[in-house]
Design a binder for these strands. Structure first.
Lengths: 285, 285
DNA sequence: CGCGAAACGATCACAGTCAATCACGAAACG
DNA sequence: CGTTTCGTGATTGACTGTGATCGTTTCGCG
């Protein structure tokens, strides 16, 4: 393994340093290069990371599953062919770890949609995965997420409605401090949202502006469907968006703590558990 | 990591050398040239990419299959009914022919912007070219064009504000039938717009919804700067957006009919003529 | 109208890349 | 301490992209 590296570069082979890169380091490096150049080649990555082509191919496969890039012959390209870094929400390392969970939950939530529905898709990485599952649907979708709007417009026949406001570059969210808004004329049958964390006190966000935007959207619908992977049950953040009783349905994975599941059902929330292995609905009772 | 550094120098060397471009890189380059110039020649691409004629022909064939361009004898031209819905505004055939004019006019109009300005960029192919000229600027930009918002967010430090409404897939425009809107809180120092055509009766559009949206935006600013290439003086369409006297400044190319230029100046409109050859301002008197 | 030059499509051999598989070693677990 | 799991590297056969060459078609010019 490392011996190969040593043979290739005699001068740097002093084993005093741990030469081998870790998986996450490689991923980070790959994504960085991808953002800078729009395209990466496996052969290049071999030289940069010191890993074998097989490993790098696996890395690319995983990152493609995570929606972070698109594989092409010889390497991979940025999901938007190098045009915009906005096609996917900015993931941090911890989010990258839960891609499988998020995708499983997103698929489960997408099953709750039907053609003709008018839905709201709140900004978030899980809801972005959900948008990818809606390519065959024909609905009216209101979203405050620029990347979700891009995805829907480019790859589906759904109608897309946007709220007015400033477009925040990093998060890709459209936020407005004003109440007058086109969304006041939107009536949705369902709203899908994620959140920063979920506690007995309710749905929690960390950013006041985001919390306010979500509260505004909540007024446009009766049914609120929360989509969160099981890691969101770790209390974080401090802005309460709404109490748990406001939630109609919660979609999460089987890793959710049983205590919270019970508590939610006591509050009248329908809880849907998705097994990320089998990617199918286990129970809804 | 230092291990990486050693190899990185190697990498950058082989990268700077015209070793071999990859398929996607060539595609990207071809599409970029196509967007910039409206037409590419196989012989030119050979010199630029270093690939063989056969390979480039295959590239063009694939891109044509993907609907990204239309092959012609000797090369390829920008596609008529633009497929790439969002990377560029959909050009019709006549527009494709005037890319040079539009870009020259767009550059001239961009010179009227200063850091700190709050401007409105109405949807349109000329204003989209203009957005490409604003990468170094730092302004607040309100636009009802999804592709322009993409361009600004991805490639500039400008702040972007969007109106609320439905996102129309083909044109990439955000339109709303309602008056309540976040844009009612936006005060712009200048508004840039193109139009379907320009006649002695005023600025003309063909779509009532578009005309109404532009009229709404007109209320948010005093200074109205119209950017049109000289082909827009051929009367077309039927919806009058506003009279010529409403226009503060008109930027066009030297191909504009002298009669209209005189008439505009009689109305108090400042007319700026851009020579597409020299791409510089000729007269502003 | 006819001619030469350029461009075109088809085909072939070569090199690089891919997915699948097996084997090795390290860390995690009971 | 043994077993399991995971990440990694090497190998194999199949596939894709590439360049050169062929004969044919199209364009431009006299």
């Amino acid at each position: 393994m490392r011996h190969c590296d040593c043979l290739l570069t005699d001068m740097s082979d002093s084993d005093s340093l741990p030469v081998m890169m870790h998986e996450r380091e490689r991923w980070q490096l790959i994504l960085t290069r991808l953002r800078d150049r729009g395209i990466v080649r496996v052969a290049d990555l071999v030289g940069v990371t010191g890993a074998s082509v097989a490993t790098l191919r696996r890395d690319l496969a995983k990152l493609e599953d995570a929606g972070q890039l698109r594989r092409v012959h010889g390497g991979a390209e940025s999901v938007a062919s190098g045009q915009t870094p906005l096609t996917a929400p900015s993931f941090d390392a911890s989010q990258t770890l839960n891609v499988d969970l998020k995708q499983a939950v997103a698929r489960g939530a997408a099953n709750l949609c039907q053609d003709g529905d008018s839905i709201i898709l709140n900004a978030g990485s899980t809801t972005w995965f959900m948008a990818q599952c809606l390519r065959q649907h024909r609905m009216q979708v209101l979203t405050n997420s620029f990347p979700i709007a891009q995805e829907l417009i480019a790859h589906s026949a759904n109608r897309v409605v946007l709220p007015g406001g400033e477009l925040y570059r990093e998060a890709g969210i459209i936020l407005s401090p004003f109440d007058e808004d086109a969304i006041q004329h939107f009536a949705a049958s369902k709203m899908f949202m994620s959140c920063y964390s979920i506690t007995p006190l309710g749905l929690i966000e960390s950013d006041p502006l985001v919390a306010r935007a979500e509260a505004k959207l909540l007024n446009r619908t009766e049914k609120l469907i929360v989509v969160v992977d099981s890691t969101k049950f770790e209390p974080q953040g401090n802005m309460v968006v709404c109490p748990l009783a406001r939630v109609t349905t919660l979609v999460t994975d089987t890793g959710a703590p049983q205590q919270m599941v019970d508590h939610l059902r006591q509050q009248g929330v329908e809880v849907i558990l998705i097994d990320p292995k089998e990617a199918k609905v286990l129970t809804a009772a």
